[in-house]
């Protein structure tokens, strides 16, 4: 009896112990995990989470020139933005800018990557040339284009005049300015997208092409059925990154047009900069930043939802 009793009493005891140990181990491994994550948690909190929370907080206030909050105004900053023709124009310009730059950048760099992927003598030289814009800073590239666009001594207008056409006010005509900034941006982004796409192309197994050759497939058939599907993860990455970059464009605007003429190139990030550091309206600038964050978040979400379906992972 007593032995049985002991046995009965002991079983739940060991079970409890087992649970306890398991729990203890779990907490230990949790803390260990946290310890490993700590550096990035600290860095992210300092440089991302805190500024994000602070921005949202500021967007509900009016501020003085030093950025200290003065009056709480609730949603008024957001209401002002949606009724401000300047901000609506800047949203429109931003979307137009994304539309001008992203597809063209990717098509041109895909084309360049495909011809640079051929195994020819001296191809290394061309690969270097095609990716060279990656090594040029935004500021240097913008200044370079600033001179090309120059109304009186710029190369582009000199060429136009030489063939008998009228010079174009590249950066002063509101119909051309956004286009001119887009050309600059496409040129600047080519190097990076080219390099990533070339990397993607090189990692496609050659046996796929060999089998296709045996089956007698033509060049364009191979591009459509092998290259593009196999490249889709890289393409997806490149599209996502280029879109986010386009939304965050700042340097070339600051140097080329300062948001002008007639606010036609006043993209959202530049508008935030102006509002915060020229007009000292940190509240309104924060509200714009929050809206930009939401827009990019939605765009990226949509891309993952719809774009990723077409992506073929090996």
């Amino acid at each position: 009896m007593s032995v049985n009793n002991v046995a009965i009493q002991e079983t739940p005891m060991t079970q409890i112990d087992f649970e306890k140990v398991k729990k203890k181990q779990r907490t230990i491994s949790f803390f260990k995990g946290m310890l490993f994550l700590l550096p990035s948690i600290i860095l992210f909190s300092v440089f991302l989470f805190y500024p994000l929370v602070r921005t949202i907080y500021l967007s509900f206030f009016l501020t003085n020139a030093a950025g200290e909050t003065t009056v709480f105004i609730g949603w008024q900053n957001y209401v002002n933005l949606f009724t401000s023709p300047i901000f609506l124009q800047s949203i429109k310009s931003t979307f137009l800018f994304v539309l001008y730059t992203v597809p063209i950048t990717i098509i041109i760099s895909l084309f360049l990557a495909m011809i640079a992927n051929e195994k020819l003598k001296g191809i290394g030289f061309f690969r270097t040339v095609y990716s060279s814009t990656m090594g040029i800073s935004v500021a240097a590239a913008s200044v370079f284009w600033l001179y090309l666009f120059h109304p009186s001594i710029g190369l582009l207008n000199m060429v136009l005049k030489a063939i008998g056409a009228d010079g174009i006010g590249w950066l002063t005509d509101p119909n051309w300015a956004l286009f001119a900034v887009s050309i600059t941006t496409i040129w600047m982004n080519l190097g990076f997208t080219f390099l990533i796409l070339l990397g993607g192309l090189q990692s496609i197994d050659s046996y796929l092409y060999e089998s296709a050759d045996i089956d007698g497939a033509g060049y364009f058939y191979k591009v459509r059925r092998i290259t593009i599907p196999m490249l889709s993860p890289t393409l997806f990455f490149v599209v996502t990154v280029t879109i986010i970059n386009a939304f965050q464009t700042f340097g070339q605007i600051d140097i080329l047009t300062q948001g002008g003429p007639v606010n036609s190139t006043n993209l959202v990030v530049y508008s935030i900069y102006r509002e915060a550091f020229m007009n000292y309206k940190f509240g309104s600038a924060s509200a714009q930043a929050v809206l930009l964050f939401i827009i990019i978040l939605i765009m990226t979400f949509l891309q993952f939802k719809f774009g990723e379906r077409k992506v073929h992972y090996q």
Binding site: T172, D173, P261
Partner: peptide, 18 residues
Amino acid sequence: ANYGTNGDNMMAGFLAGD
């Protein structure tokens, strides 16, 4: 002559006789 907001271009245009 429209040089937009760019004062440097305007000065360059003046010096170039535009």
